[in-house]
Design a protein around this nucleic acid. Structure first.
Lengths: 163, 163
DNA sequence: ATTCTTGCAAAGCCTTTGCAACTGC
DNA sequence: GCAGTTGCAAAGGCTTTGCAAGAAT
């Protein structure tokens, strides 16, 4: 995966999550299941859905129930640690905390997600919002298509089919 | 709703759909339920989800079953008459055939969708795809926030709350 | 006549939730 | 010990699907 700049953060994801939990109107608890999830999720940078996470963690010997995973993922999104990305067919999560704002190219063939940053986009959003007197709170931007590898494969195949 | 330019089309949506149905490998049939749906959907320009469509059509006295509505909506998307927009919480449909390419501002308060066109966007997409050797097939772009009315209402309320 | 579509109800999929047992603080 | 969390299984939305009856060509 192409690397985007990380953002300097003073706290670890785990600390940040604890802070979120304890600063709630009614303090929430930091449990071992939640700790396992945060540590596992932030041990690598990738895009994953709930099922993948459950399978992978179970494979590594963690004890996690489906309900707890869903509950904790919601908290992590709420805490600003994860971002939820709705791809239509499935919903994936990615790191938000400590990671630069970016958008995605989504390959419809192999499901890979290529991250990119483009300064033009922020300006475009501000222009449009200003023009429509709209108060911007966020956006969803996904470019769909075929990654270089899948496109090449498909083009080659098509050429062969014609022979 | 702010008006975007319609696109000149030589066929009515109904004709276009018939053409799609009959030009399939195995010809499909054009039924009265499908006709009712196409005519109703293209009688006004708006964004709607499956449930809203069913309720509205039943209210107008049409006989449509849930299963048929879902089946026909899928066909209409496939035929290029409708575009499916995934908003996360719900999935809505809008006219595709005969309507200019555009994107949306989505008000999280009142669920209204404001359409906009911005020539900068197409260039941005092409730039990014060229840079990543990505073969573009489409995109999802939704700016989320508060429309002018809802933002004004919320700001006013906050001011009153402080009194 | 043949083949596709409809409507119903059932099933699928993903996610949430009620509840009793459990655990952090 | 109190209040929040877990795990299970059940329930919730939304969408699809199997099947027998009905309709288009």
């Amino acid at each position: 995966m192409n690397a985007l700049p990380s953002v300097e953060v003073s706290q670890s994801p785990e600390e940040k999550f604890r802070e979120y939990l304890t600063s709630r109107p009614r303090a929430q608890r930091y449990t071992s299941q939640q700790r396992d999830m945060v540590q596992y999720i932030f041990s690598k940078h990738n895009h994953f859905d709930a099922d993948e996470l459950i399978d992978e963690m179970k494979g590594k010997g963690f004890r996690v129930s489906r309900a707890t995973v869903y509950r904790t993922l919601n908290k992590l999104v709420d805490a600003g640690l994860l971002r939820r990305i709705n791809l239509g067919e499935r919903t994936v999560f990615e790191h938000d905390y400590g990671y630069a704002q970016h958008d995605h190219l989504y390959c419809e063939q192999c499901s890979s997600m290529i991250e990119f940053q483009d300064p033009q986009l922020e300006k475009l959003i501000q222009d449009v919002c200003a023009q429509q007197s709209f108060h911007n709170l966020g956006h969803t931007f996904i470019i769909r298509g075929l990654c270089a590898t899948c496109h090449r494969a498909r083009t080659t195949k098509r050429r062969l089919d014609l022979v």
